[in-house]
Design a protein around this nucleic acid. Sequence first.
RNA 1: GGGCCAGUGAUCUAGUGGCUAUGAUAGCUCCCUUACAAGGAGCAUGUCGAAGGUUCGAGUCCUUCCUGGCCCACCA
Length: 795
Amino acid sequence: MKELAEKYDSCASEAKWRAYWEREGIYKFDKNSKKKLYAIDTPPPTVSGKMHIGHAFSYSQQDFIARYHRMKGENVFYPFGTDDNGLPTERLVEKLKNVKSTKMSRAEFVALCDKTIKEIKPDFINDWKIIGMSCDFSEAYSTIDAHSIKTSQLSFLDLYQKDLVYQHIAPSMWCVQCQTAIAQADLEDKDFDSTFNDIYFTVENGEKIIIATTRPELLAACVAIFVHPNDKRYTHLLEKSAIVPLFHHSVPIFPDPSVQMEKGTGILMICSYGDKNDVEAVNRRQLSPRVVFTRDGKMNALAGKYEGLKIKDARREILHDLEKEKLLVTKKAIRHTVNVHERCGTEIEFLSTKQWFIKILENKERFIAAGKKISWHPEFMRTRYEHWIEGLGWDWCISRQRHFGVPFPVWNCKKCGNVLVADKNQLPVDPLAAKPKGKCSCGSQEFEGEKDVMDTWATSSVSPQIILNWAKDKGYDIDFEKMYPCSLRPQAHDIIRTWAFYTIVQGVYHEGKAPWKNIVISGHVLDPKGESMHKSKGNTIEPGEVLKKYPADALRFWAAGSKLGDDLRYLEKDLFTGQKTITKLWNATRFCVPQFADFNGKKGKMEAFDVWMLSKLQKLIVANTENFEIYEYSKVKSETEKFFWITFCDLYLEIVKDRLYNSDARGKEAKASAQYTLSQCLLDLLKMFAPLMPYVTEEIYQSVFKEKKSIHLESWPIADKKLIEKDIEKKGDEIIEIISLVRKAKSERNLSLKENVKEIILPMNEKDVAGFIDDFKAVTKAEKISFGNKLSIII
RNA sequence: GGGCCAGUGAUCUAGUGGCUAUGAUAGCUCCCUUACAAGGAGCAUGUCGAAGGUUCGAGUCCUUCCUGGCCCACCA
């Protein structure tokens, strides 16, 4: 047992224990262990420059849970992964290296991505180690490593064989900035200033009608006009045709019940394609589409004189021309919400392209059913999941016309165009570099590899399969069958519609069941005003900056303060509160340690206040265990903090000082009783703080107790119900109440607490509280204690 | 427009039917007491968003409304 230094040096201590944990493999997964498994489907953060405060927040929270389960004696499988493929990575590399992927060869760009990732990843991962994540970092994966590519391709082959994936030419969501197809889940809302324009069309009978639109550049793409069949204003126009202004092509006027009569002028122009309704309308009426722009968002030849202009420039020019030709009735400024691509903020368009889709619409019920089999924490997050599924309108488009991603294990026959998929044994495969095994059914051996890569979610959604070695290509065995489903998926609420949903889809399709037993949803970090943090708003907080001022334990302690699933404001004072708790823990230990010097570890007859204290401790253990079982780490934090600060420090430590300091007068046995209680409380408190503040608890444990290699390999305290003494607790509480009143009385008289009290008359039965009286007398500095009907404090 | 969550002292927050509503921060008063002044003791601060209702009893349950956040839809 070592004396503790006067001050806790968090900086040195945290670095020391971090290195120790890694060197000693404290968090290493033991694949041969017979203990109960607890597998965590860790979120792989998207590799970006640095960890942000939201990461620090949510990863701390999942780490509390992981550490609790480890201490509970479970075999925790807690790998660490990084998501480093796909569009987000491409955009990062473009930014860091100041290049444009569209202006480079694919091979060149992929090589640059690989190189850049290698450069920045070690520092990036280090941020996670600094906050004290207890992952097994030797079980690290990247969503672009060979194992992940193989798993992802295997997943594709399995879906292909089960007829759950298909290739299809159809109008789908397209980002003209990223020049790729995207999925419904990749959309975001954004407000734009625009104009609502009333434009004249001329019907074949010469009548002029007015159509309202925000997108006049789509006039060239107009293929029909819809009016409501019951709209008396326009029934006479039905089955006639109209001439599109500026472009002079003729389009039919159809009745269609989807038209909302009260909107705009009640006349709707159908373009190929302005939105999802247009897509459906064109299909329903079997119209031949007029596509007017190119994949990079410029007008094409069909747009006549506007060819080559960007969409927005064309809009301005066309409005200008309409105005000049007196075809524009009015132009109203409006602000409206438009769907944009979440990665770049560009308004999405609809283009007919050939894409791969995973079928999801036909199995909505199965996904909802699988969601019901999972325990959601908090429960209401399941509702969000179900609503997302109910609102889905498209199958999952998984192909991206990009460079850096998992390739489709697919070739097309050059002769007949047939699709050939790779053989399982070929994986991982790059179809641009390799050839399929065998021939096409047409006899040809000439193939063209699929150039598209997969949506990054297509790979991250098989994270359970990746970590549990579904592809069976890891160097050693992790028994997929035994370990699937995982025990836990921790993640934030903003990716329920993507990561959680897609992972469930893959789980249902590959394994016929949900991928995890529990899902814990964390919230977001807000700025001090309660607003969301955005780089553009300039209100972001960098964990690196926070950690220059405060220990990682304090950051974690702050992160433990949000109720499960709740957002939390970043207020610096809360970091300070955490730091105070660390200091207090340190100083309380500094008080205890010298008291253990002459302690033989044996307990004799226990003093009343010690029984009282141990009883309260057992109750805390029960409460904390229950709360951790339901993932309520914030309640563990507040309960433990309250107990430590008030019950242990303010009350108990003060009460036992007399017995410890004056053992000659009070007796060796009374001292031993206090020593025993102190050491029990301190050890159990350290253990219960350990998941939240792994560093300071380790530092203290290693100095004072050191029964195992690490406090994090210690067992979580188990409550001894026999120690719960309701009666003594109640009596003790009554005495405590009076101690408070004595303190208050001194305080009101502006006296020091060590001031003597002449006499205290207790309104109690002497026999009931006899065991407490010596301690009570000492802590209140009372010269005389007597018993009567009414409380009286005579100073 | 639909859904979800929330509205508690100056600020943030605990509290899913039961004695005078938690704790933290800021404020004020006192105390350098041999773990801790980055501390301790104490004080003050609340019509628990509004209105109805259920109940012996409501911050807690129900209804309606108001406000905020998030998600989704619409966006001719």
